[in-house]
Design a protein around this nucleic acid. Structure first.
Lengths: 344, 344
DNA sequence: TTGAAAGCGCTAACAC
DNA sequence: GTGTTAGCGCTTTCAA
């Protein structure tokens, strides 16, 4: 019968008595310390196997000062972009023997720093994904979160690598593409307030407008999900634009769906573009033209950066800058001759 | 200057000296123990605030024998169904102050039990999501994983509640729907081998065929993602079926995309159905007819069951059985008059 | 090579 | 009411 120490589960002490050695020796064997007599080591291993002993990670963590776990906080776990980042991060970390703890802030920016702090204390490092908090707040808490990696956000706090997608350039590429197709009236369905990536798109659009004064660009309120796009149909039609840049693929899909319900053709009547290139994008009808971002890779890179920080490798990890790639599919086409009323 | 104990971070000892009390008193204050003199408590709180002290969760966990963390292991984090379960679980657990640790087995069933064991040891409980391992293996490791909740899988091991979706009934409802629309030749695009939910669908289909001997049902090999559906176009057309039951929504979307590329109309030429009702399903073109499963709710319920186990409430948590609801949208329609060749 | 003992940061039983 | 002390389960000096 497997004797159990106080707690109920089998501990190092049980193995020690069974093998007739001290805790210390069991610990050494379990950690592959070769300063143990092979014969004793074998005895310990046998005892451990028989008892199905597995070291308690909490005890280990306390003794070693590390948890082999990293945390990630995301604004919304329902968003495919963050899901993909999580997936990439999780896979890369797992390959190095690390697990990931998730924290969803549900877009409540006031909760972010608390969540981040709590997660960080349980982990060896943290990935903060597109945090919605203010620059000031981010800069203030960043030092207490170190090792910390930022995604789609930068901070003045030192030692914090950032992985950011150049949404500004991406949106310009998409706009150029629409102009080349003959669209003279564009509309941008904006993302959530406080989203840094939305600000980057806005800046990109300003640059675009400065370079193309003859193109009319209407700015529309928005969000980041299907419904945003679906509900934006009226506003889009009212704008008279024939080329629509949706904040992301989700919004674009919602919009296409709404357009379809109204009997409008994409791209026949209106061209629609997304952003991110989530896995679904190529399977929409029509397949979505979008700014492709290597999202999963972003998660993997986040792990690399974090790992370097945890291992204290090098001085300042460089961070990274990602260029979206224009992925032209079937949701964009030549502009129709302009007409006075679009809806009827 | 904040004095630091050996490790580098501020510990309970630092607060104790600053407040001029013992560790124990600080601990009492931090845990809201009211047997502390209000004045001293205030002094402690002030010291803690000034030092920005936050208790180390690892130390707490070791002392309390609990981590306030639960684990979930999923076969594939890229699958929207598991993402939704994770989301529901994470949200529900967060409301009770629990975090979630994720483990992705990447469909490698041999890794599942190791992952599960490791995750469990760091957590207070575990959710095993549609595990691919054998019944025997599951039953063997289940006791060591307790508190444990199963999703879409059952086991003979005692004390393990299961939350399972009645895919068998769901698939029958969908088949009935297609038959009512006049389809006499159906095809089923199967899911991954070793998936219990696929077996349930198969069983449901058998029951359906027994009740409808005049309906022809072709079984096709498959998988669980877009590509499966996309690549199945030829097989589907070769089957001559006009009503296709895809394993899930992803497969259905891939299939519709492939059909569209071939110039086939859905539902004009072929009706397609999915399963799960992932958020994207209503935004496909045409919107997808599917068996709606309250996936996020499944995650929430998993937490409720696990919580009951952790709190040792009641005797045997009941588990639960979920009936999919047929969600008729635009991807299914009346069968065309049969013709000899469908492609060409 | 091995055991005894200290310590990781915290909580809680016990004594004052 | 508060301090002292003994763990929680493990790793790691330090002696032997």
């Amino acid at each position: 019968m497997a004797r159990k120490s106080a707690s109920g589960r089998i501990g190092i002490a049980d193995v020690a008595v069974k093998a007739g050695v001290s805790h210390a020796t069991v610990s050494r064997v379990m950690n592959g310390n070769f300063t143990v007599d092979p014969e004793i080591a074998a005895r310990v291993r046998a005892a451990a196997a028989e008892l199905k002993y597995q070291p308690n990670p909490v005890g280990r963590s306390l003794a070693l000062g590390k948890t082999d776990t990293i945390g990630i906080v995301v604004p919304d776990l329902a968003n495919p972009t963050f899901q993909a980042i999580l997936r990439g991060l999780s896979r890369a970390a797992a390959q190095d023997g690390y697990r990931v703890l998730i924290a969803d802030s549900f877009e409540v920016s006031s909760e972010e720093s608390i969540l981040a702090g709590e997660a960080r204390r349980r982990c060896d490092g943290l990935v903060l994904c597109a945090p919605r908090m203010s620059d000031a707040e981010l800069e203030e808490i960043a030092p207490s979160l170190h090792p910390l990696v930022l995604i789609n956000r930068t901070t003045a706090a030192p030692g914090v690598p950032s992985l950011v997608v150049d949404y500004g350039q991406g949106v310009q590429d998409i706009a150029e593409h629409l102009v080349e197709l003959g669209h003279a009236r564009l509309a941008f369905l904006a993302g959530p307030h406080g989203s840094a990536s939305n600000d980057m798109r806005l800046k990109g659009l300003e640059a675009f407008m400065a370079a193309h004064p003859h193109v009319d660009v209407t700015m529309l309120e928005g969000g980041s999900d299907f419904d945003t796009g679906h509900e934006a149909v009226d506003a889009v039609l009212a704008s008279g634009a024939t080329g629509i840049l949706a904040f992301n693929d989700l919004v674009a899909m919602g919009l296409m769906s709404g357009l379809h319900e109204r009997g409008l053709e994409v791209p026949g009547d209106i061209s629609v573009t997304g952003f991110d290139d989530i896995p679904f994008a190529r399977y929409t009808t029509p397949a979505l033209t979008t700014g492709a971002v290597p999202i999963t890779e972003l998660g993997e890179q986040a792990w690399r950066q974090l790992r370097a920080l945890i291992r204290k490798e090098g001085d300042e990890p460089p961070g990274g800058w990602y260029q979206p790639r224009l992925e032209v599919r079937a949701s964009t086409g030549p502009a129709k001759a302009p007409r006075t009323t679009v809806h009827g």
